[in-house]
Amino acid sequence: MKLTLPALGLAGLLVLAGCGGNLGSDGDSGSTAAYPERAVTLLIGQDAGGSTDLIGRALADPASKDLGQPITVQNRPGANGAVAAKELAAAAPDGYTVMVFVGSLAYITPLAVPADQAVDVNDYEVVTGISQDDFVLIAHPQTGFKTVQDIVAAKRPVKFATTGVGTGSQLTQTLLFAQAGVEATAVPFNGGAPALTAVLGGQVDVAAVQLGEAKEQIEAGKAVPLVTFATQRPSYMPDVPTATEAGFNVPVQQSRAIVAPKGTPAEVVDRLRTAFQKGFAEQAYKDFNTKRLLTANEVDGTALLQQWNGSLQTYRDLVAQHKIDLSAK
């Protein structure tokens, strides 16, 4: 009696080991004809509640209706999305794991981290672009700054808050102040909310955050918008000049896309794209974009990669030109 149980257990184990890792959480890469047969995981490389997370969730809902299977959102925050990207790369390319990839991870973070930590978006299969998010430079009202020229004229060192190392917030401000010849110190925070708080509280002079995050504060008069960093004035902020108009070459935007692991079959990618496009067309999603001050960028994979690779090259050049080191202390 005493031996039977362990023996049974051992036998059982051997049988199962023989079956191989047929586990519920991994994918069983069977035929793609019946895709999708089960839930699709949508990885998000940022914390729950942040812009990227909300975008992913807003999209997942209508897209899953079209797919006929649930799309489960899972947050894997860390390193501006590099952790999630690594997990995506290791996942089976069968269409059951996809990710919301932020542009800054592809075209800004590589400028700030060692080469072995940088993630290359070209190593992935891009399903579709989602939307673009513009940055706005805001100042605390007490500083008296209304335009970038005010900052230059003040002739004093400024402190600016960034949302982290390797983010658009850091790049925009670093480039701007380098071009304007302003002595500026970066104070990195962890995300948009703390950076915003720092400006609102007057601990720093200015900060660059995403439009959606700053809108309420601007409307309430707690923050003064100086410039946006889009190539043309976003429809949401018609009264704020762009950096280009102000005479500075800082065309930086945040962008997001859905990507899948390299090697995902073309039919699967197409199916996914169709589903997400159905999501884009939904009124609820459009309203979400409007509320969050996002600009749609629902292009296909090739076009998106062109955009992003182009951006990376542009920024590399700009950073080299102004001798900026994003990773420095």
């Binding site: 199962l16 047929n22 586990l23 519920g24 959480s25 991994d26 995981t41 489960t72 899972q74």
Partner: peptide, 13 residues
């Protein structure tokens, strides 16, 4: 964990 919470713990069944 698997039923109610739908946690992605590796499970066999």
């Amino acid at each position: 964990f698997v039923g109610a919470l739908d946690v992605t713990i590796p499970h066999l069944f």
